[in-house]
Nucleic acid binder design. Structure first.
Lengths: 340, 340
DNA sequence: AATTTCTTTCAAATCGTATCCATTCCTAAT
DNA sequence: ATTAGGAATGGATACGATTTGAAAGAAATT
């Protein structure tokens, strides 16, 4: 099914059909009608790839591959990418890997075949890193930027140091007088969870405070998880183990935890300080404005897009860049200063 | 910059370069090295469009064009699309129009040229409907499904009747004994806002209760808007005008309003019933579980994807379908029954 | 009727790559 | 040295559209 079938059906030449398709005014209206009818009749769809082959117009567009749609962190990154890409004339397409290696691979394979100029990828990182498809991209000089370092491949990376971030916030709590501190950890299949656990540990090993494994509680990444684990833990907690602060994997978890504490009549921050992570919009407006860590999500997207488009537009291969961004602590009302 | 440049640089034929690119094992390793080096040196990227032209592999993928990323309604629709598309072997790419006609047009133009099999589009609908680009899609038999009816074009539509939904919920409040009811309306640039306002009016015109324009309050679509307008209104409200219920444009707005009411010491639902719209996840877990309207977001995405892919895979033009889905009311704790 | 001018259509060249078949190059066996 | 056989490479063709300049047709002018 091609343009020549249409031409035959309409009794005209290929060139004439092409003229009709492209809205050229040189076609007699009776001919145009016959051709249009033939197109409808045969349900003909011009093949974009062949169209561009000749007049290789440069349709500027990039792809962003994230892990999940409903994660506000990635949504914010996407906004940064979108805005910057727009400013340089690129359209952004997004897709999700659902944290699945196979999907990520199918996507990257498709990208090189889709007239996409480049991609920003939040790589799936579970267990053994399968990076064959990323090497494939490098082999073809396909421009891409990772949002997390992938062991074993030299590529552009724009990332946030997650362990650093958690370490800093734990240290902040220690400095403001908290002693027994808990960590409500994130989902077990996310690399971020482990990085933050590591940061949590680091903070203790650098301090004089005692650390034990019971201070890390596997919770999850959603409001319900915080609610459930919060109720569970604080209903049964031994008074000696009662924490002065809880550092949560993300804001949703922290909000759930606060909700649980309020239900149990435990005062925040007077009895327990709670810290989130990500600086989600709702954290500011909840019952108790949340102290949290604000990663430069938007800036991360902007920067990744900038590196990507620079690479796309460079004639030659640019040197690989590795940019690590810093997060900052946003102190609101869910934490207190004890030693003031 | 093409494969022939690489061939010249490496001193081999085009066919050999192609063989290297496609990982054929027939190439001597010394030759392969020379070619690989030339590819690197020239920063050569094979053109996907030309690659597929010959062996036109059918790379299954569709696009979803929504208006904004951070709208949980569309995110949920996207999930439905994604899941269904996946089940039929299609990869989903999303992009946003930012409620801008020009962007929507640029996107649709790009789609036909990008080896994309079809698209689901939430059309921008402000003032005069510019639909030239949609006619363009029809002209080329490019399969697409709209998530809202667009006046002037016969196309596949999968939608929710927004005025019906609001009418139903107002009627529910009336039936359960509420008399003075307010509407916190949505953003002025969204067609949904006006449809819901219409539904609000309809409910009154069908009842014996009095309606006046002051019952409709333009608020917005976010938590802050509900908070701000809520404080504003209820601080200064004339006791005679004190409403028994407020119907909000969406859940975020309703949560903001509830937050305002609690701050003012007004009891929900004892003094005021509050209803949201969209059934966002957080509504269930707030300080007062939110009564809301639950549109079949996920199902909407599934259905749209089904219609789209059916059209893509049909050899002939299928008859146009127009599917209207029904939303249901989810009663939680933010409304009361007065006449029980 | 002949000529000019404008409109419409056609045929061929072209884009960048994959594929296929013929050819060349090696190697090893005679 | 010769040759067969397999490995490696080159050249031509095809893919489905656009583009271009030439040819054909129609209309206007002389």
């Amino acid at each position: 099914m091609s343009i020549s079938d249409v031409a035959r059906e309409a009794g005209v030449s290929i060139g004439t059909v092409s003229a009709v398709i492209n809205g050229k005014s040189t076609v007699k209206s009776s001919t145009r009608q016959r051709v249009t009818r033939a197109i409808k009749e045969l349900n003909f769809r011009p093949q974009g790839k062949a169209q561009n082959l000749k007049n290789s117009e440069d349709r500027r567009n990039i792809a962003l591959v994230i892990k999940q749609l409903d994660n506000p962190f990635y949504t914010a990154v996407a906004k940064g990418v979108k805005e910057y890409a727009e400013s340089r004339g690129y359209i952004l397409f997004m897709t999700t890997s659902e944290n699945d290696h196979q999907q990520e691979e199918r996507i990257t394979n498709l990208l090189t075949n889709k007239d996409t100029n480049g991609a920003i990828i939040a790589p799936v990182l579970d267990g053994d890193a399968e990076i064959e498809h990323l090497f494939q991209l490098k082999m073809f000089n396909f421009p891409f930027v990772l949002l997390e370092e992938v062991p074993g491949i030299r590529a552009n990376v724009v990332s946030i140091d997650n362990s650093q971030v958690t370490r800093d916030v734990v240290r902040y709590l220690m400095d403001s007088g908290h002693q027994r501190i808990l960590h409500f950890a994130g989902p077990l299949n996310a690399a971020h969870s482990f990085e933050r656990i590591a940061g949590f540990r680091d903070a203790f090993s650098e301090s004089s405070l005692a650390f034990d494994e019971s201070m890390i509680i596997s919770a999850g990444g959603r409001f319900q998880h915080g609610l459930k684990k919060g109720l569970e833990y604080f209903k049964t907690v031994n008074p000696d183990d009662f924490p002065m602060a809880v550092v949560c994997f993300n804001d949703q978890l922290a909000l759930g935890l606060i909700s649980a504490l309020l239900k149990l009549g435990i005062k925040v921050p007077e009895q327990v300080s709670v810290v989130g992570n990500d600086n989600v919009e709702l954290g500011e407006y909840g019952p108790i404005p949340l102290t949290t860590i604000s990663p430069p999500k938007f800036e991360m997207g902007r920067k990744a897009a900038e590196v990507l488009i620079d690479n796309i537009e460079a004639g030659e291969a640019l040197p690989v860049r590795n940019i690590v961004l810093n997060a900052e602590i946003v102190v609101r009302k869910s934490t207190q200063v004890l030693n003031a």
